[in-house]
């Protein structure tokens, strides 16, 4: 525990900044109902008002308070992105580890299927599937998690393969250990550093992906507050010189930059520990 604290204290400035940024957004998301001055969908004033004491960041295209929507948007978008990433890691690592430990034709079959799925551009694939199944949140979660898990599969398989060739895994095999022990106790603990870093990167990717889909009008549907669709709803304002759509866009960039700064440090740390 103290070593973890020391590690945090020894982090470079950029990583500490990143942690602060992520923490800020998380707090905003958790305490959105407490902090927010208005309701999520409450119309609180005129359209596209500029910032004032009543409306910190002004109002949106329907006259809803932008600051309030940003807070609730954080809640919705982050929760969904996190759920998707967690789901995709669950599927991806499980199958990836399985392919690496069982090897043989199980590995061949899984890898070929994933190869083909990965050859498909994700955004196009998602657009087409969503055009078929419709844009509900459960559909969004399942579709993106499935598509994303192919990437996780590739990485976790590669990492597990590197670990699998080490003699301690062979020693466990020769002892007669089962598949679960090999995956859980021999491979997983050694695969953690790259997987944790990848989790951060995948989270960013998923987060941006949902934002992009929402921006295209095919993601999270109104009136639910969500950063991507908030950009879309207010996009028209920019040509009038009103910068309302830049706020949610900045919020997206803020969070992803924060996560990336932390991940970058972590990757540096993990690669440094190896040699």
């Amino acid at each position: 525990m103290t070593s973890g604290l020391n590690l945090l204290l020894s982090a470079p400035l950029s990583a500490r900044l990143g942690m602060l940024m992520v923490l800020l957004v998380l707090l905003a998301a958790i305490f959105a109902p407490v902090i927010a001055p208005y309701g999520e969908t409450q119309i609180a004033g005129d359209v596209w008002l500029s910032g004032s004491a009543q409306h910190l960041l002004g109002t949106d295209n329907l006259g809803r308070d932008l600051f309030t929507r940003l807070l609730f948007g954080a809640r919705n978008t982050i929760a969904i992105a996190f759920l998707i990433t967690a789901l995709s890691f669950l599927m991806g690592t499980l199958l990836g580890f399985l392919a690496a430990t069982v090897s043989g034709w199980t590995d061949q079959l899984l890898s070929r299927i994933i190869d083909i799925l990965m050859a498909f551009p994700t955004l196009i694939f998602a657009l087409m599937i969503l055009s078929v199944v419709g844009t509900s949140i459960p559909a969004l979660v399942v579709v993106i998690a499935l598509l994303d898990s192919t990437r996780v599969f590739r990485l976790s398989r590669a990492v597990a393969m590197d670990i699998e060739v080490m003699e301690f895994v062979e020693a466990a095999r020769l002892r007669g250990e089962g598949l679960w022990w090999l995956m859980r106790h021999e491979i997983l603990p050694n695969a953690m550093p790259p997987l944790v870093a990848e989790f951060g990167l995948r989270f960013c990717f998923v987060f941006l992906f949902i934002a992009a889909l929402s921006f295209l009008g095919l993601g999270i549907q109104p009136p639910t507050a969500d950063w991507g669709s908030m950009v879309r709803e207010n996009a028209g304002a920019i040509t009038f010189g009103i910068y309302t759509p830049l706020w949610p866009a900045t919020a997206i960039a803020f969070l992803t930059v924060g996560v990336n700064l932390v991940v970058d440090w972590f990757l540096h740390l993990a690669s440094g520990l190896e040699d």
Partner: peptide, 8 residues
């Protein structure tokens, strides 16, 4: 830049 969404 890679952390920014394209529309941003």
């Amino acid at each position: 830049v890679i952390s920014f969404p394209e529309f941003f």
